[in-house]
Amino acid sequence: MSLARRVTLPAAILSLAIGAAAYAQQEFSGAINARQGHMQIMAFNVGILGNMARGNTEYDAEAATTAASNLAALAMVDGRGYWVPGSDNGAVENTRALPAIWEDMAGFGADWQAYGEAVTGLQAAAGNGLDALRGAMGPLGNACGACHDDFRQPSD
């Protein structure tokens, strides 16, 4: 094997591998952006409610109901299109989605279902005064945390 071949063959394989990873990155970037966008709209609405519950902003029954309804609507979004197999944090960058999502789709679905139940409770409570809103924030936090616990890479 000539020197040139000895160098170029591994280099070619390496660049192919890098190319494949970059391709995967690009292939999934739309899906990853979409699901992260979904989470951000959720966090924005949770923030409206959470800031009221914590006394950072004044309680406003109408705004609270709107935010809770948004969260309920977000629970109805069918996200299967952007939870694409192969787009976990082991395969691509810029995501904290653990492979466990695809290894345990049933568990992932059950956690999403629990989020739906928590926001249903929140929707009923949000307009009923500050104490009712406060009481419903715990179950919501539980639902978010339970799913992140199993399916999201902790940040450091």
């Binding site: 966090a43 715990g138 539980n142 945390g145 992140h148 616990d149």
Partner: peptide, 17 residues
């Protein structure tokens, strides 16, 4: 109490428990 950070991300990992 509610598991939300100041920017309303949620606690994950063992802290959720």
């Amino acid at each position: 109490r509610d598991g939300f950070t100041p920017d309303f991300d949620s606690a994950g990992g063992h802290m959720a428990d």
